[in-house]
Amino acid sequence: MTDVRVTHIGGPTALIEVGGWRLLTDPTFDPPGRRYAFAPGTSSRKTAGPARPSSELPPVDAVLLTHDQHADNLDAAGRALLPGAGVVLTTPSGARRLGGNARGLAPWAARRLDSPGRPPVEVTATPARHGPLLSAPLVGEVTGFALRWPGQRHGVLWVSGDTVLYEGVREVGRRLTVGTVLLHLGAVGFPLTGPVRYTLTAARAVELCRAVRPHTVLPVHYEGWSHFREGRGAVEAALAKAPDGIGERFRWLPPGTATEVTV
């Protein structure tokens, strides 16, 4: 079993379907137009709605929530979905805030999803840092996820989470063979913090991919919010300058359409 269907719903939200499992990343289903507060002095306006409404989603077995404290990763409509999921896997601090069916995973901790008639899926939390060194007290705890199931051809499916390039994400490439990565981009920035970026820039994304060497890169979380400083055009420009064919690994998912990916 090597094929998986991925539906990019918008922002960081994607439905991953494999072996009868339905896994949803960072649910965001609010309509556009509202402005949301983040850390003190920072905010962002949602500029695009989801490609599919939450009412059209099939039952979800697990939500992979990279963090709960920012509305561009968990908004009001997304939060309403959580109780109906089989389990919500997130950061330890996020699990304490959410309660209910939320379970926290520290970096490199794992949880196995089992169900009769389905292949087991092992979910391992991976390091992520949502900003520069020492920014954690302001931005909070964040995680990525590596998904492993029997029959993967190229390696694990990795959800990077909102992160900058630092030693923690480089470690993913040393510990794991990555087949496919849902790569959070966007170069998040705010007027208050000037040139500081809180997610991967296009140039840093290329550098990370050169270190991790995934077979396929699925860009997500680069549009739909006013705090993004780089969109698809900036990423494609950086890929055009990359000397070693990294750009050939990038695959832009059509919004709202299930796309088969060989993992």
Rank of each mutant, 00 (worst) to 15 (best):
R175M: 12
T177H: 11
G168H: 01
S160V: 01
V206F: 03
R204W: 02
V159H: 07
R170L: 15
G151V: 03
Y198R: 12
T180F: 01
L200Y: 03
T180E: 02
T177Y: 05
G155L: 04
R170C: 11
T177C: 09
E171Q: 06
S160M: 06
E167Q: 02
Y198I: 10
E171N: 03
V178S: 09
G155K: 00
V178N: 06
Y166F: 09
W158E: 02
V181G: 08
H184I: 12
V206L: 07
R170F: 08
H184T: 13
R153S: 09
G151D: 10
V172L: 01
G151P: 04
G151C: 06
L157N: 08
A203G: 13
G189H: 08
L183Q: 14
L165N: 00
L157D: 11
V159F: 04
E167R: 02
H154N: 12
V164M: 09
V164K: 06
H184P: 12
L182D: 02
H154Y: 13
G161D: 00
F190M: 15
L185C: 05
P191H: 12
A187F: 05
A187G: 12
W158P: 00
V172I: 05
V169R: 01
Y166T: 02
R197A: 11
P191W: 05
Y198L: 14
A203Q: 10
L176Y: 11
G173S: 11
V178K: 02
V172P: 04
G151E: 11
T177K: 09
V196E: 09
L192S: 14
V188D: 04
T193Y: 12
R153P: 03
V156S: 04
V169P: 03
H184C: 14
R204M: 07
V181I: 07
A203C: 07
V172N: 03
T193N: 15
G151W: 11
L176N: 10
G168T: 03
L176A: 14
L165M: 00
G194S: 12
G151K: 03
A205P: 06
T199H: 06
L183V: 10
Y166I: 01
G186W: 01
E167C: 00
F190C: 15
G189W: 00
V196L: 15
Y166G: 13
G161Q: 00
F190R: 15
W158F: 05
G168E: 02
D162P: 03
